[in-house]
Design a protein around this nucleic acid. Structure first.
Lengths: 127, 127
DNA sequence: TTATTATATGTACATATAAACATATGATAA
DNA sequence: TTATCATATGTTTATATGTACATATAATAA
């Protein structure tokens, strides 16, 4: 693949403030960008991963489904704090629930979530 | 740290506020949780993905390396705003840079980043 | 040197948000 | 019914953070 980086088309190279240095790259990338709404949703998804409490919850749930009580005990956090985060995670379709009497069990929504966790951890742990 | 309850020891099932409903699950998951610092780092990584400006930058860079000017033009944003976010992304080892004279080209740090973007988008786009 | 251009940075402000606290809801058993 | 337990939900407060603005730095050319 030759990305036609320097095609010596200096007539197209304008100043930075208006249209950028490489208009051909800009227009090519522009056509390949997802819809703005998809990118917003994607940012919202990752935002839910971007908090240490929620990450700990998610990692715990990647090991086993758990009820709110168990998560409170594991994370040594107050129940309302855990419930608030679980609500956020559920609204973002990152976790799902199953009810058994008074107890509500939380688990990861699908396989993507576990893969995201693992891939992120891989990145963290490499040099 | 020494819960001898391992089988169906219902005498170990206490009320929620103190030790949780399922102590055997808690202790098992507890031993499999990564170090607290790793989870903090992981949350910080995802936090960087959790903003629509940065997500747009990252997606653009997944298509092609780009200079700051080009990103400003593509995203229709002011240069200081873009530079601030690029600084965050670089500190988080999500992007890397290459200098050519006055121009600094940004690109994704490694393959993990692109995979995270793609997997997140897959999750967004499924029912 | 000075001028120009590309990028970086310091600061201020406005918004977003996580946790603490109190309280409400829903399910079950007596 | 009432009592109890597991979970959810308001509300407040303190902190985090994204952007705008002004300015600084770095590389190149004249």
């Amino acid at each position: 693949m030759s990305p036609s980086a320097s095609k010596t088309d200096h007539s197209a190279v304008e100043i930075c403030e208006t249209i950028g240095i490489h208009p051909e790259i800009i227009s090519k990338v522009s056509t390949e960008m997802p819809d703005r709404n998809d990118l917003l949703d994607l940012a919202d998804l990752f935002k839910l991963f971007g908090d240490s409490t929620r990450i700990r919850i998610l990692w715990a749930l990647s090991e086993s489904e758990m009820c709110v009580c168990d998560l409170c005990s594991l994370l040594e956090m107050k129940q309302p704090a855990v419930s608030h985060q679980l609500k956020n995670l559920k609204q973002g379709r990152i976790v799902k629930t199953r009810r058994d009497g008074k107890v509500i069990y939380y688990s990861l929504d699908d396989a993507h979530i576990r893969m995201l966790l693992n891939m992120g951890m891989e990145h963290i742990r490499e040099a």
